[in-house]
Computed example of a mutant assay.
Amino acid sequence: MGKEYTAKSFKSGNSVAIRIPAALGVEPDREWIVTVEDGELHFRRKPEARERIDVSGFAGKAPGIMLAPREDFEERPSTIAARKGDRGA
Rank of each mutant, 00 (worst) to 15 (best):
I18K: 06
R19A: 08
P21E: 05
A22M: 04
A22D: 08
A23W: 01
L24N: 05
G25S: 06
G25Y: 01
V26L: 10
V26W: 07
V26Q: 04
E27G: 02
E27Q: 14
P28E: 01
P28D: 03
D29T: 03
D29Y: 12
R30P: 00
R30T: 07
E31K: 12
E31W: 02
W32P: 01
W32A: 02
I33M: 02
I33C: 03
I33V: 09
V34E: 00
V34M: 10
V34D: 01
V34A: 08
V34Q: 00
V34C: 04
T35C: 03
T35E: 14
V36I: 14
V36S: 09
V36P: 03
E37F: 09
E37I: 11
E37Q: 11
E37K: 15
G39W: 04
G39R: 06
G39P: 01
G39E: 06
E40S: 13
E40L: 15
L41P: 05
H42I: 15
H42Q: 09
H42D: 02
F43M: 14
R44I: 05
R44K: 15
R44M: 06
R45P: 06
R45C: 02
R45S: 07
K46A: 11
K46H: 07
P47R: 14
P47I: 13
P47A: 13
E48C: 13
E48A: 15
A49M: 09
A49W: 10
A49H: 09
R50M: 08
R50F: 05
E51F: 12
E51S: 12
R52K: 14
R52A: 12
R52W: 08
D54W: 00
D54A: 01
D54F: 02
D54G: 02
V55Q: 07
V55W: 13
V55G: 03
V55I: 11
S56T: 13
S56M: 04
S56R: 12
S56I: 03
S56G: 10
F58Y: 13
A59Y: 11
A59G: 05
A59C: 02
G60S: 05
G60W: 03
G60L: 03
K61S: 11
G64S: 03
